[in-house]
């Protein structure tokens, strides 16, 4: 029930954002549409722990995003320098390692974070086995047991 209400509020907010008009008719139409979609999604059993993850440790999420942003800027700067270097100093590597997350959602967040960081792309994703293509050897070496791994594991709640 908490999930459905939170989903309804998210949809209503999205409507307000896109319409930007606050006449009574449009507000009512938005609330009606959001309610209908929430109802249908509930009937289709789409609102589970993956479709609308309200159970995540949101305090950890809020501290994770700025940290991830910092990592992205750092590695994007590094990759840009390598691209512009006339010698093109890259050493593409495939690395395999075991992530420590237990739930599917935690694994997906970890894999998405790896892919979002320039210089590493998660190629195969399964429980207990990530295959990652890295642009440099250092990037591949720093994957197993990294701080990202630890932080993503801290986000999960069953």
């Amino acid at each position: 029930m908490v999930r459905s209400i939170s989903f309804f509020l998210t949809l209503a907010l999205f409507w307000l954002l896109l319409s930007g008009m606050f006449t009574p008719f449009l507000l009512a139409a938005g609330a009606g549409s959001a309610f209908a979609v929430a109802l249908i999604a509930r009937r289709m059993d789409l609102l589970d722990h993956e479709g609308h993850p309200v159970q995540l440790a949101w305090g950890a999420v809020l501290s994770y995003w700025p940290w991830l942003l910092k990592e992205i800027v750092k590695s994007a700067w590094d990759v840009s320098r390598r691209i512009l270097d006339p010698r093109l100093p890259i050493a593409p590597t495939l690395a395999e390692f075991a992530p420590s997350q237990k739930t599917d959602l935690g694994l997906v967040i970890h894999a998405n974070s790896i892919t979002l960081t320039p210089g590493t792309v998660a190629v195969e994703v399964a429980a207990g086995r990530f295959l990652v293509h890295a642009l440099t050897r250092e990037g591949a070496a720093g994957l197993a047991g990294s701080e990202m791994d630890r932080r993503c594991a801290a986000l999960e709640r069953p």
Partner: peptide
């Protein structure tokens, strides 16, 4: 500027997987 750098990387990198890293510079920074 970073978009341009990423596009240059898209052209300079030797194979598909490395080009992917250049494209992710465009998409993030």
């Amino acid at each position: 500027g970073f978009c341009l750098v990423g596009a240059v990387g898209l052209l300079r990198m030797p194979d598909f997987y490395t080009r992917m890293h250049a494209a992710s510079v465009i998409e993030t920074l």
